[in-house]
Every structure is written in C-alpha cells, then in structure tokens.
Amino acid sequence: MGSSFGNIFKIHTYGESHGVALGVVIDGCPAGLAIDESFIQSELDRRKPGQSKITTQRKEADEFEIVSGVFEGKSTGTPISIIIRNGDQRSKDYSHIADKFRPSHADYTFQAKYGIRDYRGGGRSSARETVARVAAGAIAKLLLKHYGISCDAYVSQVGSLKLEKSYTELDLSEAENNIVRCPDSSLAEQMIALIDETRKNRDTIGGIITGVIKGTPAGLGEPVFDKLHAELGKAMLSINAVKGFEYGSGFEGVKLNGSDHNDAFYKEEEQIKTKTNLSGGIQGGISNGEDIYFNVAFKPVATIMQDQESINEAGEKVTVSGKGRHDPCVVPRAVPIVEAMSALVIADYLLISRSNRL
C-alpha cells in the first residue's frame, strides 16, 4: 500500500534504511530502450550519502544490480527489477529510541497506523528509500532522452539565502560544479558556509529546489483529476521532508492582474508558442510545449544532534538525544530525487499519449 507510483510507466519500491537492501520494480518500460548502466550509476552517485562535508557521513557505494527486464543492454518490455544492497548500517545508533517518539519524525504515526515500526533509521519512512526512485528515474530519463526531453534541478535557496535569478538566466550545468548544487558559484559558497555552520551548531536547515523540464510536447496530461501539475505535485510531495510545491508563477502570481498574468499565444513557423510563461508550461492540466518549471520546499531535517523533550510508547516524558549520521541540509542530495520524480511523471504521461513501443 502506497509503495507504487505511475500508471503505464509504473514503479514499485521496497526495502528499509537498515534492511538487507532496497530496490524497485519498473513495469511498462517500452522494449528496445538502450539501458546505460554507467548513467544509472552516475545518478545514484549524485544522491548517495558521504559525498561531502555538508551531507551525512554514512558510507554507501549504492551500487545496483539489474536482475530482470534487460537483455543484451536493452529493455525487453517485461518488468525491470533493480536491487541496491545496504552496506554501512549502524542499527545500534537507534537502539536508544526503540520505544521513543522523535519530534517531527514518523515514529508515532507509523506506530499508530501499524502497531509496529522499524525504529532503525525510520525503516520504510527513511529518505534512504529514495535511492530506488533515483534508479527508476534514471531509466525514465533515458526514455525521455529518446524524445528530446530533459529534467534538471538545482538548489535555489538554503535558509534565507535565495537565488534571485530565473532559471532562464542560468547555466544549469554549473550546478554540478559545487557540493551544494547551486548554479551560481558565489551564492553556492555562501550556502555551503551556512550549512556547515548549522552542522557545527548541531542543527539543521531547509531549502528550495527548482526543477526545469524542457522539450515536453504539447498535450501531456489529463483533465480534471489527473492534471499534469497535480501529478507533479503529488510526486514532489511524496519525497521525504517536502513541505511545499508551486509551479509557474506559483504564489507570486496572486500579486498580478489577469492582464499581466495571461500568456499570449503566437505562431513561429509551424509551432504555437507563448510570449511569456507564467503558466509554467501547463494550462488546463495539460502541457502546452513551453518549459515546465517549479519549486519544491524542503523543511529542516528532523533529526538534530541536540536533546529534545518527547514521550515514549508508554506516554512517559523522555529526552530524545540525537545520534547517528544525518544530513544538516537535505537539498544538495535531493536534487537528483526531484529530477527522478519529474522524469517518472513525464515518462508516464508520454506513454499514455503514445504507443508502448519506441
């Protein structure tokens, strides 16, 4: 329940943070797609822990194994199963909270729902589950590349440090040139310093990731309940620590009059385009062929290296002490997750609108 995503290009993830392994089964990938395993690994490397001084120091190679659905380097049209084994679990780091409810974690809600919970790193509620999404998203990206569609993301805000430039003014490839994944090198250094200072203070901080999807054809999405932006919103809000989603003009759009906000159409050769793009590439829940862009807000990571008051399963007051290895700010490692989820959404809607073969 709740571990599957998509309609035609459908994924099902499994595994826990401190279990034997995590993985994903991808159903609906068209036959004949070239599966670039080095690309999949590079995407996993962008998400894996221990990358830098501003990420968790858990060491996981995040090496994957494809166990079905690929033959001689190409998808067969049958379910693709990928497994990523855990290697650096330290379950003893969590024994002190076996019966305690950590503030702003899923401990209490999992206990209330299931009557049992895996307290080791949060079990299924851990952000480590997203390694499976990134593996699936890499294959979705390979499919989209076949159609000239790209999904990119970058860190646009950490705490109060905000990148004021639009994505159209930036070279998005620059995001991978620093450890915080902000395409503005000067602001990136400030963000890194802020995250590192927060880490030294045994605290955490939140941020915003901006996503940009280019090359999407007009006509993707379904009216009423399955609007394209609604599915993108669901995809992003399903990521751990996400507290908000906006696309196009978003909340800032309320400051404009309709005469300023409307995107006027014009024709360039045989293609219909808009003079502005405050709609964010989506109108009526359906893509219009312009760039799709959006923001995803991430809260400060709930695990902090400070003592906090809480209660245990018996309802008694207790002190929860932060232990283990955790990110002081999740956004640098969440960039490939945002890209993966956007790729999964677009791949799914692309296949809905087309045949099931390349």
Rank of each mutant, 00 (worst) to 15 (best):
D184P: 06
D88A: 09
N86A: 05
D291W: 13
V330K: 03
V24S: 01
Y293T: 07
G148Q: 07
I54Q: 02
S342M: 13
A112S: 13
M305L: 15
A314E: 14
K100S: 10
K323N: 15
Y266G: 07
R354D: 07
F251G: 09
K227I: 05
I80N: 00
V212E: 02
A132D: 03
S3H: 15
P328Q: 08
S91H: 08
G121V: 02
E339T: 03
D260F: 11
A230P: 08
R354C: 09
H261Y: 12
G87C: 08
D184G: 01
S104L: 12
S125P: 05
R325V: 10
T319C: 13
T276S: 14
S68Y: 05
S166I: 07
L256M: 14
G221I: 04
D99P: 11
G215L: 10
I40K: 01
R124W: 01
N277W: 05
E60D: 09
H229N: 15
T78D: 13
I83W: 02
T130Y: 02
P217I: 08
D226S: 15
Y147H: 14
V318Q: 15
E269S: 12
L278G: 14
G284L: 08
L256N: 09
N86I: 00
E16F: 01
R181W: 05
E164N: 15
R124E: 02
I192D: 04
D45V: 00
N7C: 15
K10I: 03
K275H: 08
I195K: 09
L163W: 05
Y293C: 05
G206N: 06
Q308K: 13
L144G: 05
S126M: 05
R181C: 07
N262Q: 11
C182H: 05
G324E: 11
N86G: 01
L278Q: 10
L142H: 01
F110H: 14
A98Y: 13
D88F: 04
D171V: 14
S150G: 12
V67H: 02
Y14I: 00
L351T: 03
G284D: 10
L358Y: 06
V296K: 02
L143E: 00
V320Y: 14
I311V: 15
A153T: 02
D107G: 10
M341Y: 07
D118P: 04
